[in-house]
Computed example of a mutant assay.
Amino acid sequence: MDHKSLLRALLNKGYSQARMAQELDVKQPTISRWLTKDVKIEHENRLRIEELARENDLIQMDNEHSAPGISAGHNEIPEINVTGGLGGGGLTMVEAVANKGGMIFSKEAIRDTWKLPEWLLSRFNARSRDLAAFPVQGDSMAPTLDDGDVIFVDLRHLVPSPPGIYAMADEFGGVIVKRLEVVSRPGDDDIEISIISDNQKHARRNLMLSEIQIIGRYVGKFTT
């Protein structure tokens, strides 16, 4: 089934064009154009359409986007293998970035999946597809986060506003979790970020926003 057919199938399921636009993070005229004209749908939007179709049982999760040996459904949250999923020089675990920042991870990066109850997702103000899980390593965020905790990160938040705890890529290709706060003044050419550890044994440092890559905002944790 092609992507235009998936959109029509969603209409048959009761979706309006306005609701589809909201779910896919595009404007309603874009949905109308996809449905009525012979236009190319960009890769990120095709992935979003497929994801929405899977949520409505219109297609099955394909093997290309599933972790080996794991049945990754639409309501499952990927736990990212930080060691295996990241390489020096960047986020090699990321396969695509959607319109508003949500990331889709490559199958090699996913080591397991989580399924959270709806009441907890509601408390996080997120859907499963907006989240990823990361294991905590080290004591830099103690006592807030301990070594061995698994944190849940909302991938839609790629700018540290409001200030809070965020996951980001470090310069060695790993993932670190820190408290981020904007310290530059409004109107400055570049935004300066203070990177803070809750453990006072670790010194804070400042970097420009253009020098860091934020993965998402911390929303909760599972403590072992």
Rank of each mutant, 00 (worst) to 15 (best):
D2S: 07
S5H: 08
S5P: 03
A9E: 06
L11I: 05
L11K: 05
K13M: 10
S16D: 08
S16T: 14
Q17W: 06
Q17R: 06
M20I: 07
D25C: 14
T30Y: 11
R33I: 12
R33M: 15
K37Q: 15
D38T: 08
L47Q: 03
I49P: 00
E51A: 15
L52C: 11
D62I: 09
D62N: 15
A67G: 09
G69R: 02
S71H: 13
E76V: 04
I77M: 06
E79R: 07
I80E: 01
N81V: 09
G87N: 13
G89R: 04
T92G: 11
V94M: 09
V97I: 15
G101I: 03
T113S: 07
T113Y: 11
L116K: 00
S122Q: 09
A133E: 00
F134S: 01
M141K: 00
M141E: 03
A142G: 02
D146T: 06
D146K: 05
D149T: 02
D149G: 05
I151W: 01
F152E: 00
V153H: 01
D154K: 01
L155A: 06
H157G: 02
H157N: 10
P160C: 11
S161H: 10
S161T: 14
I165T: 05
V175F: 03
V175G: 03
R179G: 06
V182L: 12
S184W: 05
R185Q: 13
G187C: 08
D188F: 09
D189M: 13
D198E: 15
S210C: 11
V219S: 02
G220I: 00
G220F: 00
T223L: 07
T223R: 05
